[in-house]
Computed example of a mutant assay.
Amino acid sequence: MGVTLPLLAAPMAGGGSTPELVTAAAEAGGLGFIPAGYKTPAAFAEQIARVRTAGVPFGVNLFAPNPVPVDPGDYRRYAASLRPEADRYGVDVTGIAVTEDDDHWQDKIDLLLSDPVPLAGFTFGVPEAHIVKALRGAGTVVAQTVTSAEEARLAADAGVDVLVVQAYTAGGHSGTLTPERIPPATPLTQLLGEIAAAVRLPLIAAGGLATPESVAVAVATGAVAACVGTVLLRSDESGASQPHRDALADPARGQTLVTRAFTGRPARALPNVFTDRHSATAPAGYPALHHLTSPIRKAAVAAGDPELINLWAGTGHLHATAEPAAQIMTRLAQAL
């Protein structure tokens, strides 16, 4: 693929990853991903086209269907509990019906088969074997995010080429295939060893990597490359909102937690008023809770309010810096 730096910029759906960030990662010698999550097929195609014009290697990442249907009663109770936050911005969440969509799954797969990309990664679920075979037949390398040896075996059985091994320290959504359970706190180096013993596939290390030393340790443990995300969210090319950027740099926000409060799937974030009030009562239910809380989060971003938005962050978030992404990538690889 023309990659000379064993470092990847993680796909950060919801705005964090941009075509400019993907291009910057490639220009540093690495590779970035265009996330398809939450985008229409047309918007996804447009971003692929923008990166293609730069003539750099790149990947894409899709949310593979693995729904967590929400209990209707739990959903109604949770919606009612959000009234104070919704009322603050004039949002009516009690009228939002349960939405159980698949993020335009088939349309996005059709797009990748008609206009193949160098690398396609999948998160949340493992694509069916015939889809993996079709993508590989089109010349696309297929990657799968896994969080355990069992998941790695399932991905290998489906025929993928490479595994992204995501530790519990990762920011944003966990790629776990069993989102009803919080993934165990297995250190990344231990997880790499367990998965290497289970399958014979190249491994990419991910989760909380934010310093040259942590990247070097991951690669020395057996990964062919490392994947970083949160550490790029304050970069010049990031699409993260200003309140999100500011929160990442706030030394008073030194801790992270795993919460279902925003989307109904476990995700690592900085604590704020929203997580304090709702983490304990949020039911499992993806994508229903994502659609339910989305209007509140969008209104809070527009108001510059960090207390009601999903401040996704890995455990190394305080190392995120405001500078060009290529400089960050180059520095992170200096100990390799």
Rank of each mutant, 00 (worst) to 15 (best):
V231K: 01
L232S: 02
L232R: 03
R234Q: 11
R234L: 05
S235T: 07
E237R: 08
S238F: 01
G239S: 13
G239T: 06
S241Y: 00
P243C: 03
H244D: 07
L248W: 00
L248N: 01
A249D: 10
P251M: 03
P251A: 05
P251Q: 05
A252P: 08
R253G: 00
R253P: 02
G254W: 12
V258F: 04
V258M: 13
T259K: 00
T259H: 01
R260E: 12
R260Y: 14
A261Q: 03
A261D: 10
F262I: 03
P266D: 02
P266Q: 06
P266Y: 14
P266E: 04
A267T: 09
R268M: 01
R268I: 05
R268K: 07
R268S: 01
A269K: 03
A269L: 11
A269R: 06
L270R: 00
L270C: 04
P271L: 06
V273D: 14
F274D: 09
F274G: 10
F274N: 08
F274L: 13
T275N: 14
D276W: 13
D276C: 05
R277H: 13
R277V: 09
S279R: 08
S279H: 09
S279M: 09
A280V: 08
A280G: 15
P283W: 03
P283D: 13
A284L: 11
A284S: 15
A284N: 14
G285R: 10
Y286D: 01
P287M: 11
A288L: 10
A288K: 06
A288M: 11
L289D: 12
L289P: 14
L292H: 11
L292Y: 10
T293C: 15
P295T: 06
P295D: 08
I296S: 12
I296H: 07
I296N: 12
K298E: 15
K298M: 14
A299Q: 12
A300S: 13
V301F: 13
G304W: 07
G304N: 02
G304V: 03
D305Y: 09
I309E: 07
N310L: 14
L311D: 10
W312P: 07
A313E: 04
T315N: 03
T315Q: 12
T315A: 08
H319K: 08
H319D: 14
A320N: 01
A320S: 15
A322R: 13
A322Q: 11
P324E: 06
A326C: 06
A326N: 08
M329F: 02
M329W: 00
T330W: 01
R331P: 10
